[in-house]
Amino acid sequence: MLSELFPNVQMDDLWVATYETFYMTLISLVGTLIFGILLGLLLYLTARGGLWENKTLHFIVAAIVNIFRAIPFIILILLLIPFTDFLMDTIRGPKAALPALIIGSAPFYGRLVEIALREVDKGVVEAAKAMGAKTRTIIFKVLLPESMPALVSGLTVTAIALIGYTAVAGVIGAGGLGDFAYFYGFQRRATDVVFVCTVLIVIIVFIFQFIGDLITSKLDKR
């Protein structure tokens, strides 16, 4: 039945493409999480009145974040080709897309992390200080747990942006559903392939949003 409706869709290839999209999204999401939290913490802690108040460092981190957020993703991929080649030893396939995906979305998530941390009640941080907590303790036992729902919902937003980025990366040969839709669908005028890829991407987005919302509401004890 499916093959009648979508005559040009090769099921095996479609599954590979779907797998590649999941692969790129998940691995780069982990990278984004790590670097985004680091950037967000740096932005928050070095800001005025922060625990590590430092004007210069704050300015540098904020500048890096803003620059990478300003570069359109498709251009960022092209700019990063030498770096990708050096790091991954290839510039084709899902693996090659990872550096660009992480560098493109970590600053975005970093800003969301910063906002989440700023929402943490200052009084609670003060209370921890009054108990004699180390900065490390304040970060891991107060700031991160108290901002967890916002961190997770921010990560959900980032994950969905990442799914979009993987499709863009597909255009220059990263694999995944974007690649499949562009080369097998658009260039061969097989509209049904484009359609099926779109539906699959929308489903993946829904899955991520659903899981994200579920975890957020489970975590939020307020």
Binding site: V124, K129, A130, G132, E146, M148, R222
Partner: peptide, 22 residues
Amino acid sequence: KLRLSRQEIGMIFQHFNLLWSR
């Protein structure tokens, strides 16, 4: 040293300042 001294000074607040996640 200040951190250790603070552990011997309890403090309570107007808005309680409890961790909602705990």
